[in-house]
Design a protein around this nucleic acid. Structure first.
Lengths: 220, 220
DNA sequence: GACTGATTAGGTCAATCGTCCTAATGGCAA
DNA sequence: TTGCCATTAGGACGATTGACCTAATCAGTC
């Protein structure tokens, strides 16, 4: 999986969405800086393990300033998830524009494993690890975090449907998501890049096998 | 994956390994109680999120008592991992005794997904989620936690080798581990039992396909 | 019954957590 | 300049953390 931050910055809209004073660091900008830093720190260090002080030190503001922009830590988490949702939407849209066929699109998804392999080996998948942590904390935001999975799930299912596999599109989508999650987890545990590349190749082979024309033994 | 605690208690040796006073609650027993409670709480709530007070409250001892048995929290973590390692060894040995063929053994591994599905949907896989957390914390115990993965990895590779797939045994073992991890992660995120059962069936199909006799297009 | 060593309870410690308050800052409008 | 409003810095708060110390308790031995 691995929605990336850096990569997605390219996809993301201009850094000044709506009017903001002029000489940087207006309120909206600081808020965005907080979300940006929290996004990265939540990914690299975990949600609970990341303290306000860590975020403040990263962007160089005082701890007390947080309360003006966010009342609680959960509000920051919500903002981070909302940003990831938005960037995931844009990433999926970009993949869909860039590729000509559903097959291309599926390969773009798998390509994340290679593109983000360095971060994956260190921190796993941002979506998977956040969901896992929130599940253990019994946190109400788990549903929202899992919603990012759903974006991929539904988009992948659409791609499989466009490929002529409408009847089991969701099953195939979940299978692909499952593989990306398993790869990310083991890659992080073993810090094994060769494993990522090997399973990346296996995923692409599996995708090819899902082409209706390649399915020989399906309906007798 | 999911090394279970309750299930493994059956496999585990007697609760009084070496001589201990007589009327319960001698020192060694308290230590074991701490490890037992920590194992469960680390799994259900995460390592960092679990406080000494939580463990103490679970087994009904005072907080100050910890220092006699463990100097630091990391020592408790080490003891928990060591216990999981030992129980994993015994679980693998039990599987090997129970099954007649390597195929049976591989199916025992996959069966964990069904046996532990309830806990997996709530907390994911104990090994995978602990490794993910320790990776983010940059904790030195990550290697030891990943060592539990290695136990499964090497045992599975042996099974594949016994099945006549010696040349790619480790690759197959990692693929099987990868699937179990992906299934656990998504099952926890979506709380979806049907997904577990579907992918469990797919894993068993995949295992069958790895039988050399079933491989038709391998060496031309 | 006194002694001994293992075990435990209770409390203290500084550090850190998220939260919250208040005064200072700075740009803009009148 | 004056005042206004958004923004920020800095600190204080109560709670909780892991770590640590000490006195009480216990069983078994002499």
């Amino acid at each position: 999986m691995a929605i990336r931050t850096i990569d997605l910055n390219i996809v993301t809209a201009d850094p000044e969405p709506f009017g903001c004073k002029e000489a940087g660091l207006g309120g909206a900008d600081t808020r965005q800086q907080i979300v940006e830093a929290a996004d990265r720190l939540f990914y690299e260090g975990g949600f609970e393990a990341t303290a306000f002080a860590d975020i403040a030190a990263t962007i160089g503001i005082s701890r007390g300033n947080f309360y003006y922009h966010f009342k609680t830590k959960d509000e920051i988490l919500d903002a981070v998830i909302a940003q990831r949702v938005e960037r995931t939407r844009m990433l999926l849209a970009a993949w869909q524009r860039a590729g000509n066929t559903p097959l291309d699109h599926l390969r773009s998804f798998a390509g994340m494993l290679i593109t983000n392999r360095a971060k994956i080996m260190l921190y796993g998948c941002p979506v998977g690890t956040l969901s896992a942590e929130l599940a253990k904390l019994d946190h109400a935001a788990l549903d929202r975090a899992a919603g990012i999975f759903s974006l991929f799930r539904e988009w992948l299912a659409d791609r499989f449907a466009a490929l002529g596999r409408a009847s089991d599109a969701d099953t195939l989508a979940m299978h692909l998501l499952m593989r990306s999650q398993g790869i990310a987890t083991l890659a992080a545990a073993f810090r094994d890049e060769a494993f990522i590349r090997r399973e990346f190749a296996a995923i692409n082979m599996w995708i090819d096998e899902q082409l209706p024309s390649a399915v020989l033994s399906e309906e007798p």
